[in-house]
Amino acid sequence: MPRTYQPGDTFTHVRECDRYRPIYYAGASGDYNPIHIDPEAGSAAGLNGNILQGLCTLGWVVEAIAGFVEDPGRVRRVKARFSRPVRPEDTITFQGRVTAVQDGRLTAEVSATNQRGEDVLKGAVVEAFIG
């Protein structure tokens, strides 16, 4: 029996940005922008240390929806604005809420907050097939 989805359904995902995560992500993605891997470069750019690549945070948004629809291959759309940096040692909580289910496709809004309750993403939206 395939599971059913309805507007208002929710899902949650938690990820910690461990100390070396920006370096792992740099290696795998090729994004070696110094603000991600060098705390001094981050501070020089006014960021008060190094920050995680936004695309890694977006990868966690995808992980959250992929877990909810039980298959990352069903993800059809993801977008977000990186409103606040994610730093090493931050813990990010993703909370998704289904806003529409139509034609075998689900749309959800996702919030992402750090351990201080501050939003690190704005306007995050995902879409996935559920058919």
Partner: peptide, 15 residues
């Protein structure tokens, strides 16, 4: 001099 990533979106036709 520097780049900061402000927004990102992806649309997929298939995996």
């Amino acid at each position: 001099k520097s780049l900061l990533h402000a927004e990102q979106g992806f649309d997929y036709e298939r995996p």
